[in-house]
């Protein structure tokens, strides 16, 4: 920003605002990162509006489509809940309800991350003409998908709260917290989770340009990923070195922390807090480098 101002103030003989750009060959290297960030920041609004318009185009006049976005994970949560309780054969209502609440908030959160990743992964290959005809930082496209996924995630929270309140009315013994000070950790957890998912979206979006079946592969992978995440099972079920499973999974710390906060009303553990930050950093650094160093190739390969 400061640079632009200096340029504008410098006396020039010409009337147009000069902005010199140089395009040179590159070999999978980063473009000048400051200029890139400046362009990115200047057009952040584009991501937002693209998300808004994409929403508008998809649900042009069907509010039913939007309802479905919430209904789908809700119904799925009930199916999983039935499955889990039947398999375990428990009949304790209060405990059953805790399991349901855990699955519900876990699934909503997992879906948020999954949507960021899978929609982001397709954002470049579906960018088509926009990519062929306009020069702009390509990270804006997966960012736009992430924004959309976040909007879809937001209404699921009140749905979760409503279910828990209903549950507490009908099963007074239910041991599920709703409002506690621990909720103050939610912005941190959500931000780290969003960054982790966004970084992974950058990786898969790049791969999808080179291998078009990446996104299809991803849809199978996320299903397995779900079973490996503490959504259908509780983090407390793991003991000793098995707890590693929680932390090698990029979404593990976020899902464990979410359950900790919502269900038990506890602040996340230190290990979870660190795990969240570490995964967010790893994903952003690797994803950012992988994507930005190759994004100038996208137009040739689309």
């Amino acid at each position: 920003m400061a640079e632009e101002k200096n340029e504008a103030q410098a006396p020039r003989a010409v009337t147009y605002a000069p902005r010199i750009q140089v395009f040179e060959p590159h070999r999978a290297s980063l473009p000048p990162i400051r200029g890139y960030m400046r362009e990115f920041w200047r057009r952040k609004r584009f991501s937002l509006e693209l998300a808004r318009f994409a929403d508008k185009a998809e649900y042009l006049d069907s509010n039913l489509g939007k309802v479905w976005l919430v209904l789908n994970p809700l119904l799925l949560a009930f199916v999983y809940f039935l499955l889990v309780t039947v398999l375990r054969g428990g009949s304790d209502k209060a405990h059953g309800f805790t399991t349901l609440a855990h699955i519900l908030i876990g699934l909503f959160t997992f879906y948020f991350a999954q949507n960021v990743i899978s929609d982001g992964a397709q954002s470049i290959t579906q960018g088509g003409r926009l990519i062929l005809n306009q020069a702009f930082p390509r990270t804006l496209l997966p960012l736009s998908s992430a924004i959309r996924s976040f909007w879809q995630y937001l209404p699921t929270i009140p749905v979760y709260i409503a279910v828990v309140i209903l549950g507490k009315i009908f099963i007074p013994k239910a041991d599920v917290h709703i409002f506690s000070w621990a909720l103050l950790w939610i912005p941190y957890v959500t931000a780290c989770l969003a960054l982790t998912a966004f970084g992974m979206a950058l990786i898969f979006a790049t791969m999808n340009v080179y291998f078009r079946d990446t996104s299809k592969l991803l849809s199978y992978t996320t299903r397995i990923w779900l079973y490996g995440s503490p959504v259908l099972w509780l983090p407390e079920m793991l003991h000793g070195w098995h707890r590693v499973i929680l932390y090698v999974n990029p979404l593990g710390p976020a899902l464990a922390a979410t359950s900790e906060i919502w269900i038990r009303g506890h602040a996340p553990t230190l290990a979870q807090l660190i795990g969240l930050l570490v995964w967010a950093l790893i994903a952003m650094v690797f994803g950012g480098y992988f994507f930005i160093s190759r994004e100038r190739d996208f137009a040739v390969r689309i």
Partner: peptide
């Protein structure tokens, strides 16, 4: 327009570019 990177050589552009390319806008 800065959409395709050069394989060799260099392009220097002085000014703000607006494009209307073959396939239409996005």
């Amino acid at each position: 327009a800065g959409i395709l990177p050069p394989s060799e050589g260099r392009i220097t552009v002085n000014g703000k570019i607006s494009t209307l390319l073959a396939l239409g806008v996005g």
